[in-house]
Nucleic acid binder design. Structure first.
Lengths: 346, 346
DNA sequence: TGTTAGCACTCCCTTTTATTGAGTGCTAAC
DNA sequence: GTTAGCACTCAATAAAAGGGAGTGCTAACA
């Protein structure tokens, strides 16, 4: 069977209607609120066809139709037209971002919050990963007897600190020489480029300073390599109570659980492609969210720093709006950091 | 009317039973499962008295009795005997804490998680506040043209970083002198002790170095004073679904909302007294948790660093166990940091 | 050949009506 | 003061009865 124009129109009408109301939609509704000028009987025939083709389904005999996953998929791929209007109010994000830009963490929390508020779905934001960054500056200082503070600054001014406890005292002179050694050797390298061989070479060069330096060099190398763990910020989890089909105890509990265990959301973080992904129902990579749809977008802060924003809602979510929101956000985040290479972190 | 021994025993039996089952308890149950050897009719008379006195109430005529807030209060204040047995398994906390001690943040998250798992209620942990800490070490370094890195270490090795953008270049010599100036003046002072007067004095001493130093000194002073914001970690929020009296949509949504907006939990953070507080029903300082009971404990890491742990559950929570758990935890956290003045933070 | 009116049928949902059973309060006897 | 007995109450569950939205099918129509 073919999906001709009329069938497409009817399918679209069904989905639109269902997105709004959340109730199965019947043939009479379509007949009345469409410009097709067809009787309900005709619509019924077409609906039977659409059901056979797998785009819609009946919760039970003598109920209206609701879209199937396949139906939603078709809608998202072919029928949807993003609307910019509703997104207008996202301007506020721009303002908020500018205000709170001083701290990466609070900014991302803010983004999650605004997204959740704006869409009325649940939102998550992952912290950006910056593995390609180069070491800019390393410094060791004596803080206390037996305690050395190592400060490492990498590009974008991401700062790492580590306190090293040493059993043997290091002289001021040794410390100074070590600082020079470390900076000379590590400056300008990315984290990946710091190999074991390099570290050994440094140790050899330092051999004549003191017995303890090996330890210190190791510790610094480790501190540099220490992968910032992936932070995930969420907001609006309780919005799911707004959608009856998700609000029953079993489902709500399952969904909220996944949300609470933020690592579980890690599977959404996909740094591969910059774009917007829509997962419908079973397609989702998240266990326990089979009744939801998930939309993710990769954002970029300047270059090299990529993170993910995700929106989780019922299958009948307003895909147009969600995709529009994410697209706007991508642009805003991108332009926010354009020509602004700084980042502070504590 | 007097609350004689028999009434007390009956009240206790009612509460114990209700804590376990969550069902209203009738006179027959008490008559059978108590060593009082009284008929149900007698119990009924006593129960009528207890109701009149306000310790118990009936959800509806011809139902058994459940404890009132006042009943719970009496139980907690007079009847409860903490049991150490169930807490035994808390030993695991000790192990976990030792393992993850390297990072304050993950340790606190871990504490919240273990508490939630152990009690099957919702848990929150606030980060400790350390306002009395003294400055140990200050250092300025040039990271880039126009960018100065300020590193401040205070007692317990809490480290603060700040990148300062300066329009005018500072010479190596100026930087060195500034470092000496800052350390001489600030070392050993607590955050509160750093007054405006002091800062002015420093500025005057520095006046001959360069025009830009005022700015730098201000920035450093501000960085020192910048209050660490109160972080709150939560876990086990979804445990509330385990208690039918909290699991209906309206209540669950309200409770989870409060939990999601972590600042709201801030009202639980009470640094005043070290001890365990039990809030029953209406007594709670948390809006939207009137159907819950909340138990909080102040913990201390070494001296001066105080934080709060809170447990939120249904009114019929196992107060014995919860209080026992919190007490154990207080001891463990305390002893963990005894003779171990270190703390790392990034 | 596609469209439409008409009608019987299905099945969820809501309301109504019974039924059950745990638990009470009261009274009278011990 | 304690207890057995009994009538009564009321939530909870089940069963029965309507109501209604929506369907599928058939037959007539353009």
């Amino acid at each position: 069977m073919q999906l001709d124009e009329r069938k497409t129109k009817i399918l679209q009408a069904i989905i639109r209607n269902y997105l709004e109301t959340g109730e199965p939609v019947g043939s009479r509704t379509i007949s009345k609120y469409t410009d097709l000028n067809l009787s309900s009987a005709t619509i019924r025939n077409e609906m039977a066809d659409l059901e056979e083709m797998g785009y819609i389904l009946q919760p039970h005999t003598s109920a209206g139709r609701i879209p199937s996953d396949q139906g939603y998929r078709f809608y998202v791929d072919s029928l949807m037209k993003e609307n910019d209007k509703k997104v207008g109010q996202m301007q506020e994000i721009q303002d908020m971002l500018l205000e709170r830009q001083d701290k990466m963490e609070s900014m991302l929390k803010q983004v999650a919050k605004v997204v959740a508020n704006n869409t009325q779905y649940a939102a998550m934001v992952s912290s950006p990963r910056a593995l390609g960054n180069k070491v800019k500056f390393v410094q060791l200082s004596r803080v206390d007897a037996g305690q050395i503070l190592a400060v490492i600054v990498v590009e974008r001014n991401v700062i790492k600190n580590k306190i090293l406890s040493v059993t043997e005292e290091l002289s001021d002179e040794t410390l100074l020489k070590l600082n020079i050694l470390l900076n000379t050797n590590l400056n300008g390298l990315t984290i990946d480029e710091i190999s074991l061989g390099m570290i050994d070479a440094m140790k050899k060069q330092a051999a004549n300073y003191s017995g303890i330096v090996d330890e210190v060099i190791d510790a610094v190398a480790e501190a540099i390599r220490a992968e910032e763990d992936l932070e995930i910020y969420t907001s609006g989890a309780t919005n799911i109570f707004k959608y009856p089909e998700l609000a029953d105890n079993t489902k709500a509990s399952e969904i909220l659980n996944t949300f609470e265990e933020k690592q579980m959301l890690g599977s959404l973080v996909n740094e591969e492609e910059r774009g917007i992904q829509v997962y419908i129902g079973e397609e989702t990579p998240l266990q326990g969210m089979k009744d939801c749809s998930v939309v993710t977008a990769t954002y970029e802060l300047g270059d090299g720093m990529k993170g993910t924003i995700g929106i989780i809602g019922p299958k009948r979510m307003d895909y147009d709006k969600v995709v529009g929101t994410l697209r706007t956000l991508q642009d805003q985040l991108d332009s926010l950091y354009k020509g602004n290479g700084e980042r502070k972190d504590d």
